[in-house]
Design a protein around this nucleic acid. Structure first.
Length: 992
RNA sequence: GGGCGCUUAGCUCAGCGGUAGAGCGUUCCCUUCACACGGGAGAGGUCGUAGGUUCAAUCCCUACAGCGCCCACCA
């Protein structure tokens, strides 16, 4: 028996356990061995994360698709797993250490720290998985993966080595975005531009060979900068070759004898060069060039062969808890900063002090202040202006990024992007909505080298080993690297050992002992490097597993637009390169979930709506339905709890409708075939059910989740509950008859179809109702409603009945199968236009009568007859068939026929015929006149609008015939209505 | 500076070339035997502005205004 109240919290856990126990979500179920595969890989959440609304939306949509396709008989694999999320996770653990006042990661050392992170992973790694289960996610948990588990790590190393050998991964010394808080390089994508109010400093650089006089412009050149402290690293001043103001400098430069300025505070001479980079319209037209600390200047420097002077150094000896520990210069006692040297040491330049001693070891901001002070004191500052500009910040650390010259590993993304662009161009992968492909193309066509090395500890350590002489050995593991190194050194006849090269006898001895010292690259890979492999690494690659063969390429990727670059693009590149095939056919891009006022949810704003709290309050089904209903393509979702409440009410409505069915003896009849129904009402609901099923199916196929949700909502509430159940009441509560038996079966049948159609949206309540309303199974007899569900009746499924909570639940009857594995409705051949016309007439008539009653303020207790005037034979027949229903729903006393409406009666127009309600004395005739006049206004407006069209010769000549015909019909109809209303008004006059 | 998107009922949003839709809110009526997390009936939009294309424009095009997002190396 169905409980009076539906309590999601009491049902959801039990239902989920039943699905898992039955292995309902397992891919490759034997009975589906020949079925078409359908595969989705989950966007792996951070292993230590917890479910937020974005996850809830993302996974609801995936689950909806997976459940839909599973019911359609496909062999569904929803591949779950989690991401190690390098920076994020490392930050969390470091913060924990700090909070507990424990030693920082540097004090602990790499090994101890990593152990700590693994512990944290073990402790919190299950959280998000359990939260996904609470949402109802039908992942195949038996296949759960983690980006740092053994298999996936193997894939990562293999990919690195392969790309290295192909020359697509290489080490390069160039400027990177250095995060001074996290002390690591980050990729372009991890940098956010933040508009910042700052200053523009105009600095006088004295010309060499002249006596500097701040009052005499001929003794200096003025440069403008937003970062005065970088002046220590300047190696040139650039002017535009065509800038007349600086003609003498341009000429000198062209003659190969560039003039020089003396860098203030440092005293180092630097050349004035001519380069198109300099914009005569900006600042003074002269710009300082700091190749080691600015991306543009770096390019200029390369072009002009300028020195690179790195004036900052990340000081690794500082505590990790010192968060702005990016320091200036270098700390004593070393007078020459190792990082602050000319890039081409080989040339043996003078190693004079590049950085004044009193500035070394300072923080950037402190150094800036002191440098500006010193420059002002020396008369070198000509002007300071307020200036607003964009400053790069680290997206995780939120500190100002420092361009920094280091060796890092790069992926040649430009090369890998080519096939990835082509695959979308030629439609092998398709974006939904399509406009996202433009974003994808824009980025891919301008893609930059991808910096993949990170100076972190948590992640995949780069599989590169170095000899003490710096030789690189890129291999899949340490042993292979060693073997490779030995081979290498044998071939060149020497071997580096403990910092020295050994030759001759020593070499022979070391060879016998196989001694070579190798040191592994300390860096780890960008988290997104392993994520890029996700669609094939999770399926077993590099092994040629059956799963890989069966499920790759995957069917659809469901994700948010914010990670198109981070993830989607990179999966495309890696998938195509290593699998020679796109990773997914469709990419469904959904919107962001915002709060009710449209603001991005963030912890700091305190406007986060916790999906788990919503689930607690309203149930997972209500949340899921809300998200699906709001997932219209192309717009952000503003979520409000009110909306969720509305869909909770919808679930309750379904629950109560099911209770009503049960109370009226409507139980599933396995042998019932809706096609054989005789009753018009039953044929009508079968027709409507088929129509709804078609709508819902095609909407989900087109990823129009909101349309699908609206269609199922409307069908359940406005068709099934409002009309079908109401119209069926007289039969169900009447005496036993063939009609009653048929109606009972049909009520149950339509309910079951509803449960199926609604299941992808609301899996818990539908599964619960499916189970509770199932007929008892006679032990030993297979009772599947169809071949598919019979097949699923294996030992796993039947063990369900003894599952936790099942046996001692009084309302629980035996289940024949899980709804989750029941075939999706395919309802061809139930169309019935005749039934639709008849029930449509009933509905219209009831609506019209209710309207009048309400508008005329006729109390519901007041009964009156319904007069059908000049009714056709068809109408009379219908009236006979539906009198009982009309009496009940419209609360009319009885039905009579008349030639014309009696005086003083209220007239209704239903499907072209007149019905009258003799309400004389019950109503205010003035009110009725007002009602009719209001209607008349509408009709006249209609007529004049239609006339305007029809009298337009162009319209009649050029519009499609159908459209013109429709207008003519409407015109006739409106004219008829006008006539009837006129008559009614006349009669009213007579009555008064 | 480029690119994308949005502007429709009080609110949140669908729709998208041929008579404006939903949910919530609101007003009125109803404790009718599934459901007050309910039932019934209403009110409420010149579809941002101005042009254009078309027989016909909320829908297509152009410009403008406002809002939002993404990308970008400008001193």
């Amino acid at each position: 028996m169905i409980d009076k109240i539906y309590q999601p919290s009491e049902v959801e856990g039990r239902i989920y356990a039943a699905w898992e126990k039955a292995g309902a979500f397992r891919a490759g179920r034997p009975e589906r061995a020949k079925a078409e595969p359908f595969c989705v890989v989950i966007p792996p959440p951070n292993v230590t994360g917890s479910l937020h609304m974005g996850h809830a939306l993302n996974n609801t949509l995936q689950d909806l698709l997976c459940r839909f396709e599973r019911m359609r008989g496909k062999d569904v694999l929803w591949q779950p797993g989690t991401d190690h999320a390098g920076i994020a996770t490392q930050m969390v653990v470091e913060r924990q250490l700090m909070e507990h006042q424990q030693p920082g990661r540097r004090e602990m050392g790499r090994e101890a720290f990593l152990k700590r992170v693994w512990e944290w992973k073990a402790e919190s790694g299950g959280t998000i998985i359990n939260q996904l289960k609470r949402l109802g996610a039908s992942c195949d948990w038996s296949r759960e993966r983690f980006t740092m588990d053994e298999g996936l790590s193997r894939a990562v190393v293999k990919v690195f080595v392969a790309l290295y050998r192909e020359g697509l991964i290489y080490k390069d010394k160039r400027l990177v975005n250095w995060d001074p808080k996290l002390l690591t390089a980050i990729s372009d994508l991890e940098v956010v531009q933040v508009e910042t109010k700052g200053h523009l400093w105009h600095l006088r650089y004295p010309l060499e060979g002249q006596t500097f006089n701040p009052e005499d412009p001929s003794t200096f050149i003025v440069v403008a900068t937003t970062r005065p402290e970088t002046m220590l690293g300047d190696t040139a001043v650039a002017v535009h070759p065509d800038d007349e103001r600086y003609k003498e400098f341009v000429d000198a430069f062209k003659a190969g004898q560039p003039k020089k300025v003396i860098l203030p505070l440092v005293g180092r001479p630097i050349p004035i060069i001519a380069d198109e980079y300099s914009d005569p319209a900006k600042g003074t037209g002269a710009v300082k060039i700091t190749p080691a600390h600015d991306f543009n200047d770096f390019e200029v420097g390369k072009r002009r062969g300028l020195d690179q002077i790195s004036i900052f150094t990340p000081d690794a000896k500082l505590k990790s808890t010192d968060f702005d520990d990016f320091t200036f210069g270098h700390r004593a006692p070393n007078p020459i900063a190792p990082d602050a040297v000319l890039a081409d040491e080989a040339k043996g330049r003078a190693t004079f002090n590049l950085i004044p001693a009193d500035l070394r070891g300072l923080d950037r901001s402190v150094a800036r202040k002191r440098i500006v002070e010193q420059l002002e004191a020396g008369g070198f500052v000509s002007k300071i202006e307020p200036h607003t500009h964009v400053v790069p910040h680290g997206d995780r650390s939120n500190v100002v990024i420092e361009p920094y010259l280091t060796d890092q590993w790069y992926v040649n993304a430009k090369e890998l992007a080519k096939p990835a662009i082509a695959a979308v161009r030629n439609g092998r992968s398709k974006f939904v909505p399509q406009n996202w492909q433009k974003t994808y193309f824009d980025w891919m066509e301008n893609i930059q080298p991808w910096c993949i090395s990170r100076q972190l500890w948590w992640g995949h350590q780069i599989p590169v080993w170095y000899g003490t002489d710096g030789a690189e050995f890129v291999e899949t593991d340490a042993d292979v690297a060693l073997a490779s190194a030995i081979q290498h050194y044998e071939s060149i006849g020497e071997r580096p050992l403990q910092g020295t090269r050994v030759t001759g006898n020593e070499y022979a001895r070391s060879l016998r002992e196989k001694k070579v010292e190798l040191k592994r690259d300390e860096d780890v890979l960008d988290t997104w490097f392993s994520s890029a492999l996700w669609p094939f690494s999770t399926l077993g690659w590099p092994d040629e597993t059956p799963e890989l063969k069966r499920y790759y390429p995957t069917s659809v990727l469901v994700t948010g637009f914010d990670i198109i670059f981070f993830w989607v693009a990179r999966m495309m590149m890696m998938g195509l390169h290593f699998m020679k095939e796109v990773p997914f056919h469709d990419v469904y891009i959904h919107a962001l979930v915002r709060d009710a006022s449209g603001a991005k949810m963030s912890k700091s704003k305190g406007n986060v709506i916790d999906p788990l709290a919503i689930i607690d309050d309203y149930g997972a089904d209500a949340l899921r339905f809300t998200l699906a209903a709001m997932a219209a393509q192309g717009r952000d979702i503003k979520l409000s709890p009110q909306r969720v409440e509305g869909y909770r009410n919808f679930a309750t409505k379904l629950w109560n409708a099911s209770r009503f069915a049960e109370m009226n003896g409507c139980a599933r009849v396995e042998s019932f075939d809706p096609k054989t129904a005789k009753e018009t009402l039953n044929r009508w609901i079968a027709h409507e059910t088929a129509k709804a099923a078609r709508e819902i199916t095609s909407a989900i196929e087109a990823y129009k989740f909101n349309d699908a949700a609206a269609a199922v909502y409307r069908f359940v509430w406005n068709i099934y509950c409002d009309w079908y159940l109401e119209l069926s009441k007289p039969v169900l509560t009447g005496p036993d008859s063939a009609a009653k038996t048929e109606t009972q079966a049909m009520v149950a049948w339509a309910r079951d179809e509803i449960l199926k159609l609604l299941h992808p949206f609301m899996p818990f309540i539908t599964e619960e109702l499916w189970g509770v309303t199932a007929p008892a199974v006679i032990p030993g007899r297979a009772e599947g409603a169809n071949p598919e569900s019979r097949m699923t009746m294996n030992s796993e499924t039947s063990s369900l009945d003894s599952g936790p909570g099942a046996s001692h639940r009084p309302g629980m009857t035996k289940r024949d199968s899980l709804l989750a594995l029941t075939p999706w409705p395919n309802l061809a051949g139930l169309e019935d236009a005749k039934a639709e016309a008849e029930i449509g007439w009933v509905i219209d008539l009831v609506n019209a009568i209710r309207s009048v009653r309400s508008e005329m303020n006729v109390p519901s207790a007041t009964q009156f007859p319904l007069l059908l005037c000049g009714a056709s034979a068809e109408t009379k027949a219908r009236a006979g068939r539906w009198s009982e229903f009309l009496q009940r729903l419209a609360r009319v006393a009885n039905i009579e026929f008349a030639d014309a409406p009696p005086p003083g009666s209220v007239q209704l127009l239903v499907r072209g015929e007149v019905a009258a309600l003799p309400l004389k004395g019950l109503i205010d005739l003035d009110a009725e006149r007002a009602r009719l006049e209001k209607e008349m206004v509408k009709v006249l407006a209609d007529i004049s609008r239609i006339d305007a069209k029809l009298s337009n010769a162009d319209f009649v000549a050029r519009a499609p015939e159908e459209v013109v015909d429709t207008e003519r019909e409407r015109r006739e109809e409106a004219e008829a209505r006008r006539g009837k209303i006129l008559e009614a008004l006349e009669r009213l006059k007579g009555a008064a």
